[in-house]
Design a protein around this nucleic acid. Structure first.
Length: 104
DNA sequence: GTTGGGGCCGTCA
DNA sequence: CTGACGGCCCCAA
């Protein structure tokens, strides 16, 4: 099981209408947050990987979202019922943790 | 609010 | 092998 696979697996567990952060994923997988973006960017198959549900640790959207830019990402999030205020997400309401997730 | 540094480490040229 | 860069993060001006 490679790191990327773990990342994708985690992202896939994010329920609709919730989001998580790069930092959180990095924390679970014990890797540097920087790697998350790199990995997600490489994997360009939004059909199976809901990478729009991954945002920065302050709730704002990432810069290089590869599938239409952050406006498209924003649209998708709103479509799921997530509310964005000033391009930021209220993490206290929509943040999803991987508590209990077994990395293995 | 902004910029700029350092960190970390895989990936790509 | 070497160097540059990243969908980030943290801290300091």
């Amino acid at each position: 099981m490679t790191i990327e696979e773990k990342v994708f697996k985690l992202v896939l567990t994010i329920p609709k209408g919730r989001v998580t952060t790069y930092k959180e994923i990095a924390r679970i997988l014990k890797i540097n947050p920087r790697r998350i973006g790199t990995i997600l960017h490489k994997n360009t198959n939004p059909d199976i990987i809901p990478c729009h549900r991954v945002v920065k640790s302050d709730g704002s959207l990432a810069n290089g979202y590869a599938f239409g830019g952050m406006k498209e990402q924003k649209r998708k999030l709103q479509e799921e019922g997530i509310i964005l205020k000033k391009n930021k997400i209220d993490l206290s309401r929509f943040f999803f943790t991987f508590s209990g997730y077994d990395v293995a």
